[in-house]
Amino acid sequence: MNDTVVHVDHLSKHFRILNRREGLGGAIRDLFSADYKTVRAVDDISFDIQAGEIVGYIGPNGAGKSTTIKMMTGVLKPSDGTLLVSGNEPYANRRRNAQTMGVVFGQRTQLWWDLPVIESFRILKEIYRVDDATYEKHLGMFNELVDLKALYSQPVRKLSLGQRMLCDITASFLHNPRIVFLDEPSIGLDVSVKSKIRSVIRELNRAQRTTIILTTHDLGDVEALCRRIIIIDKGKIIYDGPIGKVTALFGAYRTLKVQIHNYKEGTSDQLEAALGARFGGDAAIAVEHTETGWTDVTVNQDQVPLFDVLRFVMETLPIKDVRIVEISMENVVQQIYDGALK
């Protein structure tokens, strides 16, 4: 038996979008406008995912993540290319595909808002035609992982975000799907709940060798759960491979955020030049001024000690405030473009 759960081959999705004009006059002219442009949300991507894998599918906002997920779940029709999920074309066989998959969207629950949790599970049992034995077995398993019993009688709307997420995630495994899509499962949760959610996901994946595709902004999720990641940006895959190399990459980088007193146009360029002169002129240090008023100094710790850079910056410029943060998704993508993985 073929163990490929997802087969993506030269897949593309294009949208036509109206070019809107600005201002009041523009809005009036838009009433009669027919000025469209084509956006390639997903542009010729290919990959295969095997049974039992947990794959991190990541990228900055607007990279084409959601569009890919929507195609895989049968919501959107691909413009071009081949897409098979568990051997089905999701769009053509929406219902058959839905029977073998589970989906969780982080921001919105798919449980019944006003109903007690257990009633949502009962309805799902009926929708997916889960037999009694499997249903009891799964509920038992969920109870061991999460103390669901305590939540059963609560209406979904009264649950905390973390509790709701745990219910949503376990619910998506109820009918024993071959593949589960988790979209931002830990968004807006605090650290302890995040780690709880990660361990539940790991257990559920192990229990039935369920394939999981995880889209997230949180590099911590990816690090904790995935062995393989696919990075997408501007509709194209820019990295597909083991997570190790990428972890090494964002593990080594830190961003020094500084607020400079009396910041003027060009100060960041001068700073970058000065840092280059002091620590060497390669890609180890990048300086960028952000709209929020902070100046980001991104440092590769393998090449330059962070605290040396900090000391140098504080000596050169009048600094009001300093923060050190882990590298962001956007930075990772930028580093990959700059050739960090080659």
Binding site: R20, L24, A27, I28, D30, L31
Partner: peptide, 16 residues
Amino acid sequence: VRGSFMAIMMYRLSFF
């Protein structure tokens, strides 16, 4: 006032 006026103009066919 201006904002709410603009918001409606954004809807093309709805106006017709």
